[in-house]
């Protein structure tokens, strides 16, 4: 019989891991809300951001002190992600405007392979280490083991969500983004330039990818499997609903916690590693009961 203490510890590590899924899922939601495009390439963006960051750190570290190097590399990578967003808008979204969603979905699949292919050309396929300067030893609070890097990930995810919430709620561009996600035709009719909006959301998704890439890269090393791990964001999306930012946070936590608990307590019973597929089963179960996800945006219907 496991002690409650052990259960708590497992749940906590699941919670922290789950927030990382949320971070990736956030990128999906931003793009989906603003343009109805399901961006399959979000995982590839995570990989790309991590690789660019590693290269930028190398360059800046050679030039000066490490702390300056970190921030310079971070800013440089952000700039690259914005450029990538602009390029995607110009060469992918703009030519395909007014095409059905499935066409755009296919295009993002193509984009995934393009990004991965180009990354492989530039970086090869070796595993890079990414050092955030956070020691890999856990904190022990009252005997509870908490990974420092997990804690950092959680803090980043929460900070990002708060920043986004403020941006959406209180800025002119944030308001325009919400308008576009409500009715893009109407937004167009009052002079909101959709091209610009797309660059903004893809840039924001790029930032989410960057932070996810940093944490994942620091934990697992920067390697191509990152873009596969990112697919864990899918069940999070199904759980949280494709249009809800609070939804992906809660969804990520639910997936992270339940998958860890299942792995530890159910896994031995069924005799296998269930962590890799448990999330999908959970998502399917939710899908059957609530097709719009737990937090899918309510469609306002006046009667």
């Amino acid at each position: 019989m496991p002690t409650p203490f052990f259960v708590l510890e497992v749940a906590l590590s699941g919670l922290l891991a789950g927030l990382l899924y949320s971070l990736v899922a956030l990128g999906f939601v931003l793009i989906y809300k603003a343009s109805g495009v399901f961006n399959f390439a979000q995982g590839a963006l995570v990989l790309l951001a991590a690789l660019v960051f590693v290269r930028a750190t190398e360059i800046f570290d050679a030039m000066g002190p490490a702390t300056v190097g970190f921030w310079a590399a971070l800013l440089a990578t952000m700039a690259v992600m914005v450029l990538v967003a602009a390029a995607i808008e110009r060469f992918l979204l703009r030519p395909l405007v007014n095409q059905p969603p499935i066409t755009l979905f296919m295009a993002t699949i193509g984009l995934t392979f393009l990004i991965e292919g180009i990354s492989q050309m530039i970086w090869g396929s070796r595993v890079y280490t990414l050092d955030l300067g956070i020691p890999d030893e856990p904190w022990i609070i009252h005997g509870l083991y908490i990974g420092k890097i997990d804690l950092f990930a959680a803090a980043v995810a929460i900070a990002m969500v708060i920043a986004l919430a403020v941006f959406f709620q209180f800025t002119r561009i944030g308001r325009a983004l919400r308008a576009v996600s409500d009715d893009h035709q109407a937004a167009l009719s009052i002079g909101i330039p959709l091209n610009f909006i797309w660059v903004v959301v893809w840039s924001l998704a790029g930032m989410a990818a960057l932070f996810a890439g940093l944490v994942w890269g620091a934990k697992l090393g920067v390697q191509f499997s990152i873009s596969v791990v990112a697919l864990k964001a899918l069940p999070v999306l199904i759980l949280g609903g494709f249009t809800s930012i609070p939804g992906v946070i809660v969804g990520g936590i639910l997936i992270g916690v339940s998958e860890k608990l299942a792995e530890v307590f159910v896994g031995p019973v069924v005799g296998g590693a269930i962590e890799s597929w448990f999330a999908y089963v959970l998502a399917l179960a939710v899908l059957l009961v609530r097709p719009q996800g737990l937090f899918g945006e309510k469609i306002i219907e006046r009667v």
């Binding site: 308001r175 325009a176 308008a179 009715d183 035709q185 109407a186 009719s189 009052i190 002079g191 909101i192």
Partner: peptide, 26 residues
Amino acid sequence: CIQVMEGRRCFQHLTIEENLLTGAFA
């Protein structure tokens, strides 16, 4: 030159004031 589309097309999840403010975006 601006069009008010058929069927009003307000941004349903924005408040009335936010709707009005989006009109000043351009």
